[in-house]
Design a protein around this nucleic acid. Structure first.
Lengths: 155, 155
DNA sequence: ATTGAGGTTCAAGCTACTTGAAGGTTTACG
DNA sequence: CGTAAACCTTCAAGTAGCTTGAACCTCAAT
């Protein structure tokens, strides 16, 4: 009952100790208690909070979102929490679906590029364009007219 | 024929001027010529090189890959270029497909979380767990046994 | 006494840029 | 000719979410 050291908390939550320290420094969790030796000590409450955070991270939520949810959770207003979480999750779901759509489009492009690169060089002659046209985009790789392929991973 | 200024090159390649400067500082392209006023000046060759880079970026290639491809392209050994590009593109394609698979799994999780959050709180009573269990993962959100959902966007 | 496995802090590095400050240049207009 | 807008320059710092490293302390075992 004296409290758990950071490595034990790391084991239970699945988060690396360095990440737990980082979350503290980032204000996601309160500064941990310290033992007489200066080591951080954690109780069950902290482990649960960190598990909650780990769960949110599995949903790919950003730290800003996580911060909001942690605050809502602590505030203990149940409806409030549920409403907040629904909004955050819904937004994240929409973003994820958009990401998937973009990546599918991208994988099509890559597939086409690969197909073209698998063909022997045109007529054995190494022209000026060469394989580079696959990327320069003389033909297939231009965005299909207003396709905005660019911001795929920008988030 | 005096040369294009950076904003004109930006317009032709679709890359922001700031990005072009950044590519120069990152060693992706050679330092541009300068006019008597200190402005950068570009010729057709540079525009083509930058278009090539923009094309590679549309394929979501990292700067390390792009650097390699640019070098190969400049080296002018055609077979070599084609082999390099094939390898890079194939790797990228595999990565993209893996990403898609992970995101699909993630969107399933999010969908389940949303479903559960849409249901009214259990029996009207706001228990200790409340909506938080959706993320804490008492039930559905635990990784389906050895699923490694974590490194979804780590790259 | 010393080794090894923990713990601590603080700083820097990672990707691929973007943004901002502080300033010089060029061009168009009145 | 004056000046304001629009361009260009460099350099520094900020972004997300950590990870890694250096330099040091603590504790249990040999």
């Amino acid at each position: 009952m004296v409290g758990l050291r950071i490595s034990e908390v790391a084991e239970r939550t699945g988060l690396p100790a360095s990440t737990i320290r980082y979350y503290e420094s980032a204000g996601l969790i309160e500064p941990a208690e310290r033992g007489s030796n200066g080591y951080r000590l954690y109780g069950e409450t902290e482990v649960e909070r960190l598990s909650f955070i780990a769960g949110a991270k599995r949903l790919n939520l950003g730290l800003a979102d996580v911060r909001q949810l942690v605050a809502a959770r602590e505030s203990d207003l149940c409806e409030h929490v549920q409403r907040d979480m629904r909004a955050v999750v819904a937004t994240r779901l929409a973003e994820t679906r958009a990401q998937i759509a973009e990546l599918v489009r991208l994988s099509d492009e890559l597939q086409r590029a690969e197909d073209r690169l698998s063909q022997p060089a045109t007529g054995g002659v190494c022209s000026d364009a060469c394989a580079c046209s696959v990327i320069t985009g003389d033909q297939a790789l231009q965005p299909p007219a207003g396709a905005t392929v660019l911001p795929v991973l920008n988030r």
